[in-house]
Write a protein that binds this DNA or RNA. Structure first.
Lengths: 333, 333
DNA sequence: GTGAAAGCGCTAACAG
DNA sequence: CTGTTAGCGCTTTCAC
């Protein structure tokens, strides 16, 4: 329970026989205080178990030493890496980390930002579902950093999806596949668009027929319908929006007695926990998601000092790599 | 970026031609203000886009409308459910949710609590690694709720481990197993102790030989050494501290060509993501971890109002259930 | 029913 | 180098 009275800077001041401001200085700007005084004050503070009030500091300085991360869906293991990376980095910088799930809703994102605006120094928007325009406008008022999303002029950290998508197509092409299906995720998903464009372009260049189905909920359960939809297309390769969906597809195909990769090859994105031990293990595009979270925090911290104009357009692009496992193989026939 | 000046309660007061205190009342205690005045004030506030400063409110009231959850390890999917449940509940109550990973270290827990003490209304300690005494002492000063941990006199929400452990043993007994090994988790883990006691007692009652090995790191990689250790004991059944460890054991056994469940049966705890699609799929004790997170937040909120004495000893015990899959089968021979 | 004023705990001028 | 003073934005007596 919060004890009735916590020791304040005034308690320390009185006990040490100095002014409160001196205590404050001894704590913040040690060099602006006589060495002896400082020692003394610090000693008293220590003895009294003084702990500064972040609230009071924040109220007065406008800095909260806090960042908030908005994540569309915590059900999706994809975000765990990002969250972990961001939390670690924030923690290392002594920054408090607020986590908020927005349930795949742009409105929720807005509401949360509104609510937290005065309590944080900035927002980490992970795979935001908001439109470019909305985000752009928000950036006028708030310190933002995007994760796995790019908006013109705003700082972002994204794990490459384009080069990786091309690698996927090349991999499939080299296995002799001539047609592939992309199972798309939420239509507000920026990466979904990126992936499809890259897949589509590469496929055309390599003479592969590429079609898109969906959107499907990016969850294991979404894989059922997705798999059935794939089978009617007759495609020999499936690229799913993420590993969850891919795993769902694997399960449904197994149920229906379709051999993977014998009849159909399956590829996912993210290399989530479990991608290596599902059956068959999943070929997937892996990327340093935690690194993306880490970088985004850094971008935020960089801009924390700035106060007027919009942040500089810093973009961090992290490399992904294709992890080839058992779910892809030569095209049938 | 934080705009230079946000609209304050004074701006609203001036614009509405009333005192700041009236604005405050109109917002907080609508009934203590003339209906007409209230409407007017609210209108002006709305028009000016006024948003209260949580910091100022907190500083003055002592209430932060924020809780912090301390989690030993975010790498472990086991915690995802708890985190999700807690975040959801907090969010629904308009409570800001701070997440902090303590890297399996009791010291880190203490440090974080110290750091956040003045910024939050209470702490959620998930599977805390601290000693009973330390937690007990902390409770003098802070509002605490425990998740999957019990300490005399403190509010807690735990997913039952004892009844479930008994079920595990009964399950194994009914399959004819006569010896089992428990692979224990971190020795500071309270649930690890609970589980072992329950397993051990039940085993004795049913005439099964039960031994404990470990501690092992509760991760997939920990399963390698654990599996090897099991094999030398000659036991026909293994109960792992959690599913990660169990999955690690499955992999190692597969590598070594040991049939599961043909030669050895394997059981885990938690029913994490992936437990249903690893091979063989994992028999495991499932429980409503998200419910535990949710309940813990409620316990915290209940006590938030109280300010002096320690919180009442509210304990929530949530039922678990055994999910039988392919990793357990009749004892060999 | 409403206003004036004090104060939550801290920092940042401004004097001295 | 250090003390005094004035707020940060809000809530809460205490008067009127």
């Amino acid at each position: 329970m919060n004890s009735p009275k916590r020791t304040t800077i005034y308690d320390v001041a009185r006990e040490a026989g100095v002014a409160a401001s001196t205590v404050s200085r001894a704590l913040r700007n040690p060099r602006r205080v006589n060495a002896a005084t400082r020692e003394h004050v610090l000693g008293v503070a220590e003895r009294l178990g003084y702990r500064p009030s972040p609230l009071a500091t924040a109220l007065q300085s406008g800095r909260t030493a806090t960042v908030a991360m908005l994540v569309p869906d915590i059900t999706n293991p994809h975000f765990f890496g990002t969250i972990r990376g961001a939390e670690r980095r924030a923690s290392a910088a002594g920054i408090t980390f607020i986590l908020s799930y927005t349930e795949e809703s742009a409105d929720n994102e807005l509401t949360q930002i509104e609510r937290l605006a005065r309590s944080v120094d900035g927002f980490l928007l992970a795979s935001s579902r908001m439109s470019d325009e909305t985000i752009w406008e928000l950036a006028e008022e708030h310190n933002l950093a995007l994760v796995n999303r790019e908006v013109r002029g705003l700082p972002s950290a994204v794990v490459d999806s384009r080069v990786g998508s091309r690698q996927i197509v090349e991999h499939l092409a080299s296995l002799g596949h001539e047609s592939m299906v992309y199972l798309s995720g939420p239509h507000q998903s920026w990466v979904a668009g990126e992936r499809w464009h890259a897949l589509h372009d590469s496929a055309r260049n390599l003479g592969i027929r590429a079609t898109r189905l969906g959107p499907f909920p990016p969850k294991v359960v979404g894989g059922g319908a997705a798999a059935d939809a794939v089978l009617v297309t007759g495609a020999t390769a499936v690229v799913a929006h993420n590993d969850l969906l891919a795993i769902g597809v694997l399960r449904r195909l197994a149920e229906r007695g379709v051999a993977v990769p014998g009849q159909v090859s399956v590829v996912g994105y993210d290399d989530i926990f479990g991608a290596d031990f599902c059956v068959p293990s999943l070929t997937t595009l892996a990327g340093p998601q935690d690194e993306a979270g880490r970088s985004a925090v850094e971008l935020l911290l960089e801009n924390r000092s700035r106060s007027t104009a919009r942040a500089p357009d810093r973009r961090v692009m992290l490399p992904s790599h294709l992890v080839i496992r058992e779910s892809t193989g030569p095209a049938p026939g």
